[in-house]
Design a protein around this nucleic acid. Structure first.
Length: 923
RNA sequence: GGGUGGUUAGCUCAGUUGGGAGAGCAUCGCCCUUACAAGGCGAGGGUCACUGGUUCGAGCCCAGUACCACCCA
């Protein structure tokens, strides 16, 4: 084995072997376990959030596979309508073409071509992460099977009246020229203005003042509203306004939606361009005037002077015209929430169009109930409240998009404008006896999330009744971020219940978001993005800077980012390997809080990998080609052997408990702690005296070799779900030494997960080792504090030992001598004069290190002084507690007794320390 | 405006029936000891945001305040 762990040399080969041997497909027993991947966009590459979630999913998948479950991790990707279409359009743009130059069919061919060409990025990355998903089942939302499921769902919902077409206000993206759903709109506060406009009354008796953040919409005003109880305007209700810049007269109406205290208390109403005004327009039967074109220019419905102007040019001109007419009262700076398209970034316009909608209330009700009844459980639980709140206020879902890339809506129109919905044109003609009448298919496609909503059952073969559907639905757990609970999770639940009668998954594990080490969101524009692959393979600083700064809109930002990046990573990023990164994610995955990703943590866990690697080296050096007991022969287990085996059982139990609660952080800690602080720091050291010492028998050496390899072999299986590569590599070498035939059992990933055996728990061994550790640590402490070289052999004296201490020393003298580097250990009889010594305590027993030529008196005084101070504080605290009658009366007896014992112990220790100090002082 | 989460060591974070404040990294000291210097051994470092309450006892429970983050209107 190489002296240092080198992930590069092992990872990719191992993955290839696993995949070629078809280890990823389900082949377990009766219990099925299934995770559906949240399908990433084909456009994209995996970011840190994916890497995090994939680590969790893969850990769960590997864990359950090893437990013998029939385990499927279903992979696939999403066609991501808008995002993908934008990417391809941008490519066309570089050739100076638009999609319209190509035409719909040619454009779609182009998208497919692009997908074939560059859609493999994600699956390649997933392989690098070690994702053990069943690639033979890889799905894509635009595949024939899934497209059929989409058709089927659309038609059935339509036939039930749950899909309808209607003219309403939608969120219109004037750049992408499509409707988008509420969820695709992001509103953020921006600085704007509030324009106060004077609207003259028709009878010439004065004017009202209305305030607006969008003056251009006044061209579409069809009323002015006041609050019905507002005394100031009572007499005006029912009168009319002469709308400036137009020749229209509009009514003054009363509606209690109006806030009396905001602005003048008068509100201009533009039903065709504002959601609230739309509602009010419905209530009051107001005319709707659509003054915008799809590209947000002023339409022909407006006075000629403004037609064809861009919305912001029109705004400017209208304000100027008001001013000229003396009708501009004032302009105030104003902060407002500006809605922007999450893809295009342009300001969204509420816009009146024909769109398709899903009537959501009938679907939402059972979906709400499923969570309330506990058929679906959120982890952590508090996300269910967010879910309830959303589901109880859910609006109908606009599902049509004016795009080309996606599932085209299966609706046809005849020349009279009738609409027919069916699985195909043929079916429609037949069903409605249309003969060969001219039919035109609806050009729109469905919202990407429509097909995503069917993902859990469509990938398993629905609408066919497949065995997979029977076996894996409901799936076990969905692992995802809270940002798509509404986009995706809720819709899967609704559709799943509707079409399969089953919940799509039993649990939803909500992960936190990955942020940078300062808690900033990772984004291209901030230049703080980390690519998981760069953490695995490493990257030099120049390449990293290039990566972060290419394609920046603003060259100034690029400069800033380059500078910051160079400062933060002067040497670039070291290659940490997949396992180190995965373990980092696991270790940081506490209860769905956001995670500030710190590369220092990765480095720490890379070191952990190296520790494991070297522990394995040590074990192999001492066990390979040697007698590990698999061929029989007497075997005697030492106290250390029994102890480490006992500790291992406890670690397994702890791990199981943590994973059952999705506490991967606690699980990782248990593994880390056992591996490093227990197995490496103590057990491997304890094994050395036995293996290297002449005083131990063959049976004892055999027992220790056996324990070394069997604990390591078990530990590899325990670690495997989190660190698949290094554990496989080591297991392949260690397993044969435990008698496992690796030609038959070819991979750790198909081995059984360790089971904790309670009869291997050994309290006596644990106490004995505890005793050993106390003494060794005591001696080391003196060495450390006194600056005595670790290698310098010491003579020690024990005093005031009990019978147990004496028998322990008799049994474990070699361990003590070797681990504490002692030359001699001798008993001092009670009352026997001790030489001047530094002391430590193991219970009541004193450990004395004679100081002649070794120890500085003042230093030892200082050390003991510190010790004394600590003990006195503790003594004070406890005795204070115990002298409080309230405490002794009211606290449970067990607690009080515990405190009493503690006090006794502290006081006896304190006495001994004080005695030592006195002795030193007397010199 | 409504809601959710957070505030613990210099940094990143654990702390699950309320009963001795923890880890990793960073810092300091000693050591290249025959698995590992990506290491070993030891040490220092915290009014657990603030105020009040419940309790014999609060990092933990309750009320309020401040600040931060996110979601919704």
């Amino acid at each position: 084995m190489e002296k240092a762990y080198d992930p590069k040399s092992i990872e990719q080969n191992l993955y290839k072997t696993w995949e070629e041997n078809d280890y990823f497909s389900p082949k377990g027993g009766d219990n099925s376990y299934c995770i559906m991947i949240p399908p990433p966009n084909v456009t994209g590459s995996l970011h840190m959030g994916h890497a995090f979630q994939h680590t969790i999913m893969d850990a769960l998948t590997r864990y359950h596979r090893m437990k013998g479950d029939n385990t499927l991790w279903q992979p696939g990707s999403d066609h991501a309508g808008i995002a993908t279409q934008m990417v391809v359009e941008r490519l066309l743009d570089k050739e100076g073409k638009s999609r319209h130059d190509l035409g719909r069919d040619a454009f779609i061919d182009k998208v497919w071509e692009w997908k074939e060409h560059s859609g493999g990025t994600i699956t390649r990355q997933m392989r690098r992460l070690g994702d053990s998903c069943d690639w033979s089942r890889e799905a894509f939302t635009m595949d024939d099977d899934l497209s059929n499921a989409v058709l089927e769902v659309f038609v059935r919902l339509y036939e039930e009246g749950l899909i309808y077409r209607g003219q309403r206000l939608v969120n219109w993206d004037p750049k992408l020229l499509t409707a988008v759903s509420d969820l695709e709109v992001e509103s953020h506060e921006e600085n704007g203005h509030l324009w106060h406009l004077k609207y003259p009354l028709s009878d010439g008796s004065g004017h009202l003042v209305v305030a607006t953040t969008r003056p251009e919409t006044m061209l579409g005003d069809t009323a002015v509203a006041v609050h019905p109880d507002d005394e100031r305007y009572q007499h005006l209700i029912g009168k009319t306004i002469k709308l400036p810049l137009t020749d229209r007269e509009i009514p003054i109406i009363a509606d209690d939606y109006v806030e009396k205290d905001f602005g003048s208390g008068c509100v201009k109403i533009t039903p065709a361009h504002d959601f609230n005004d739309y509602e009010m327009g419905q209530r009051h039967n107001l005319e709707m005037i659509n003054i915008l074109t799809p590209t947000a220019h002023i339409s022909d419905a407006a006075p000629e002077a403004y037609r064809g102007l861009d919305r912001y040019e029109a705004r400017k001109k209208i304000v100027e015209d008001f001013e000229q007419l003396g009708l501009l009262e004032k302009i105030e700076p104003h902060k407002l929430k500006v809605p922007r398209g999450d893809r295009s970034g342009v300001v969204i316009e509420p816009y009146l169009t024909d769109q398709w909608y899903v009537k959501i209330a009938p679907l939402a009700e059972p979906a709400l109930k499923a969570v309330k009844d506990g058929d679906i459980k959120f982890v952590p639980e508090n996300w269910s409240n967010t879910y309830y709140h959303w589901m109880e206020n859910i609006q109908d879902w606009c599902i049509s998009r004016q795009l080309w890339w996606g599932h085209q809506i299966p609706a046809w129109y005849d020349n009279e404008g009738n609409v027919y919905v069916g699985r195909s044109e043929e079916e429609v003609r037949q069903k409605h006896n249309l003969g060969d009448a001219e039919l035109r298919r609806d050009e729109d496609v469905l919202d990407t999330w429509f097909s995503s909503a069917l993902w859990p059952f469509a990938t398993l073969g629905w609408p066919e009744e497949t065995p997979e559907l029977e076996t894996f639905l409901p799936t076990s757990v969905l692992v995802t971020g809270f940002d798509i609970i509404f986009f995706w999770v809720a819709r899967m639940i609704m559709m799943g219940l509707k079409f399969t009668g089953k919940v799509p998954f039993k649990e939803i594990y909500i992960t936190g978001l990955i942020r940078d080490e300062h808690g900033q969101k990772m984004s291209k524009s901030k230049g703080n993005v980390l690519d998981p692959i760069d953490i695995i393979d490493g990257i030099d600083i120049d390449s990293l800077v290039d990566k972060r700064t290419t394609g920046m809109m603003n060259p100034k930002d690029a400069e800033k980012i380059a500078k910051r990046t160079r400062k933060e990573f002067p040497e670039g990023i070291a290659p940490y390997g997949t396992d180190a990164m995965r373990f980092t994610f696991c270790a940081m995955a506490s209860t769905s809080r956001d995670i500030n990703f710190d590369l220092n943590r990765v480095e720490g866990y890379r070191n952990f990998c190296n520790k494991i690697w070297n522990a394995a080296r040590y074990v192999l050096m001492n066990a390979e080609d040697q007698d590990t007991g698999i061929k029989g022969g007497d075997m005697t287990l030492s106290v250390a052997d029994r102890w480490i085996t006992s500790e291992l059982q406890k670690t397994i139990t702890e791990f199981e408990k943590a994973v059952a609660n999705y506490r991967f952080d606690l699980a990782s800690n248990a593994l880390y702690e056992f591996t490093w602080n227990t197995y490496c720091d103590w057990y491997l050291e304890l094994s050395k005296p036995i293996l290297y010492g002449d005083e131990y028998s063959d049976a004892e050496k055999r027992g220790t070799r056996h324990t070394l390899v069997s604990v390591l072999e078990t530990l590899m299986r325990l670690l495997h779900p989190f660190m698949p590569f290094i554990t496989e590599e080591i297991w392949q070498r260690v397993a044969p030494l435990t008698g496992i035939d690796t030609t038959e059992h070819s991979s750790i990933m198909l081995q059984a997960f360790p089971v904790s055996e309670t009869d291997l728990i050994d309290d006596k061994a644990e106490q004995d080792i505890e005793w050993l550790k106390t003494i060794i640590v005591g001696v080391r402490n003196i060495r450390g504090e006194m600056n005595i070289a670790p290698g310098k052999p010491l003579n020690v004296l024990f005093r005031n030992g009990s019978e147990q201490d004496k028998s322990r020393l008799a049994s474990y003298r070699t361990f003590l001598s070797k681990l504490a580097k002692l030359e001699s250990i001798e008993w001092l009889e009670a009352g026997q004069e001790a030489p001047m010594s530094a002391t430590a305590l193991a219970g009541k027993m004193e450990i004395l290190i004679p100081m002649a030529g070794l120890i500085d008196v003042e230093q030892e005084m200082a050390r003991l002084g510190k010790e004394k101070e600590k003990l006195e504080k503790e003594q004070q605290r406890i005795s204070g507690k115990l002298s409080n009658k309230n405490f002794t009366d009211k606290a449970p007896e067990a607690v009080v007794n515990k405190e009493k014992e503690k006090l006794e112990e502290v006081e006896s220790t304190l006495n001994k320390v004080a005695e030592q100090i006195k002795q030193l002082e007397s010199l």
